[in-house]
Amino acid sequence: MKVKQISAVIFDMDGLMFDSERVGRAAWRQAGEEFGYNIGDEHYQQVSGRTVADATEVFRGIFGEDFPFQEIRRRRVQIARDYFEQHGVPIKPGLLELLDYLDARALPRAVATSTDYAPAMEKLTRTALAKRMHAIVTGDQVARGKPAPDIFFAAAKQLNADPPRCLVLEDSEAGIRAAHSAGMIPVMVLDLKQPSEEVRRLAVLVAASLDEVREWMEGLQIEG
């Protein structure tokens, strides 16, 4: 894919803006154990970047139709919330510098996260990052979650941006597939899981950090 002039940037949230996937993974494991289920890393990876509705189907496919998803999820949310209230929401290194870079070039940006609106806004408000975004689209606001492209189309529409000129920053395979399906410019920023070779081929860049993304953008001489 040839990178065209970038006119907007769309951010995933958990695992991309926030170092929260480790907390989420541990919270799922603890909540599952409390209900008698062994939710391992391999199970968590299957729902990473997916909506609540999709995660429900995945877990019931693994553990059976009687899997008490909503009860375990509520407990998982509480465990994670308790952690963030005690320790704060950890911002990924390089995020603030990247946002400053986008500010300097007047590039509009959005968050497009599979997380539901209320918990997403809780994190974005707690970290004072909501006000640095021009649009926020959450998983409960679209008909289909990632890897369907719906959430990215919705974000581009709110930014009044042409999809082929939208740069999408993602840490999940589902997110990269969604960005590619939307005809956007997918960049993967590594977090918990190494991408498959197929997903690597879909991304125009696989970066180790947001600092690397900013340096790559500087090399493109993007003026906004």
Rank of each mutant, 00 (worst) to 15 (best):
S114T: 13
Q86T: 11
V199C: 11
D82F: 08
V3S: 12
G64E: 01
D12H: 05
Q70M: 03
E215A: 15
S209T: 13
E42Q: 12
R177C: 05
L98P: 10
I62C: 04
G183K: 09
D41Q: 08
Q46W: 09
H134R: 13
R29F: 10
Q194R: 15
L124N: 03
F11Y: 14
G61P: 08
F18L: 15
Y117H: 12
V137D: 06
Y117W: 07
F11N: 03
Y101Q: 08
L99V: 12
D171F: 04
V77H: 13
A207E: 04
A27D: 05
Y117D: 02
R144W: 03
D150C: 09
I222L: 15
T138V: 04
H180S: 11
N38G: 05
K131H: 13
F11G: 00
F69Q: 08
I62A: 06
Y101D: 05
V137N: 04
R165Q: 14
K2A: 08
L220Y: 10
D150H: 09
V199G: 00
A130H: 14
Y117M: 08
P108Q: 15
A55S: 15
E197W: 00
V206C: 15
D103N: 15
Q86W: 01
V52A: 06
E57K: 14
T127R: 03
I176G: 08
R60E: 15
S7D: 07
A207G: 01
R105L: 07
M1R: 11
G64T: 01
A104E: 14
S181E: 12
A179T: 02
R25A: 07
H134T: 00
K193R: 10
G40H: 07
K92D: 02
L210E: 11
E215G: 10
L98W: 06
R76P: 00
Q5S: 08
T56M: 14
G36L: 04
V23T: 10
A106F: 02
Q158T: 07
V142R: 01
R29I: 00
F84A: 09
M13Q: 13
P119E: 09
T51C: 11
V9F: 06
R144E: 10
I136K: 05
I176R: 12
L98C: 11
R73Y: 13
R201L: 09
V52G: 04
W28F: 12
E57N: 10
A27W: 10
P195N: 11
D66T: 14
L205I: 09
G64P: 03
G139Q: 06
E57R: 14
G15M: 13
Q158Y: 09
V168C: 03
A110M: 04
Y117P: 00
Q194P: 04
S7I: 05
P119T: 05
L107K: 05
V58K: 13
R50T: 09
